[in-house]
């Protein structure tokens, strides 16, 4: 007997099989990978003096050399060349490399305002204070200021690369971090270096 395949061949009962498989695949993809990710150890110990390449653009590359032992790199939530998240006790350090667009490229003040907006996108209560000038140990000038939110208080730091093609942004804080904890690692804020391409 010929029938339109809306109801044939086979029967409607056979439609439960693809329905079950498709639903299971959609659910399992999220559940299984999340479980595997959660079960794997996700930190990597960083020693004092280890250099981490943060990224680069134009003629420069940036690197971070953590001055203290005891930092742990959160591998699962970091992306090479873009975002690095570190923890040391109660202190959290996030270092991001950003590549501005526009002609002319935005200056440090504009990037500071943009950094404040990005912080607010992550936490609506986050605010950056008025920036002050800071210099890396290498002598590159940037901006720093207080970063406050409902849950934590810390510092934000911004270093545009010497040619302005990219910038390194850092936030140093932690919900349970005390002022003493933050002061103990404050020199991290000056540990960024810029290297001209071809110099190394």
């Amino acid at each position: 007997m010929a029938q339109p395949s809306g109801t044939a061949p086979g029967t409607i009962r056979d439609h439960w099989i693809p329905l079950g498989i498709a639903t299971a695949v959609a659910v399992l993809l999220v559940v299984v990978w999340s479980l595997v990710d959660a079960l794997l150890p996700g930190t990597q110990r960083i020693h004092a003096g280890d250099e981490i390449t943060l990224g680069g653009d134009g003629g420069y590359r940036a690197a971070l050399t953590l001055p203290q032992d005891g930092w742990l790199l959160d591998v699962g939530s970091s992306q090479a060349g873009q975002t690095y998240r570190f923890h040391r006790g109660t202190v959290d350090l996030t270092v991001t490399s950003v590549t501005p667009v526009g002609d002319p490229l935005p200056d440090a003040k504009q990037l500071w305002a943009g950094m404040g907006d990005i912080a607010r996108a992550g936490d609506p209560t986050a605010r950056l204070g008025e920036p002050e000038v800071i210099t890396t140990e290498q002598g590159v000038e940037g901006l720093t200021g207080v970063m406050r939110s409902r849950t934590e208080e810390g510092a934000a730091v911004l270093y545009p690369s010497p040619d302005g093609e990219f910038a390194v942004e850092m936030t140093l804080g932690g919900a349970d971090a005390t002022i003493a904890d933050l002061e103990a690692v404050a020199d991290v804020a000056r540990a960024v270096t810029f290297t001209e391409e071809g110099e190394r």
Partner: peptide
């Protein structure tokens, strides 16, 4: 975000 939150329209 990758552009630093500036000139977002262009990005």
């Amino acid at each position: 975000i990758q552009a630093g939150g500036v000139n977002g329209g262009e990005a």
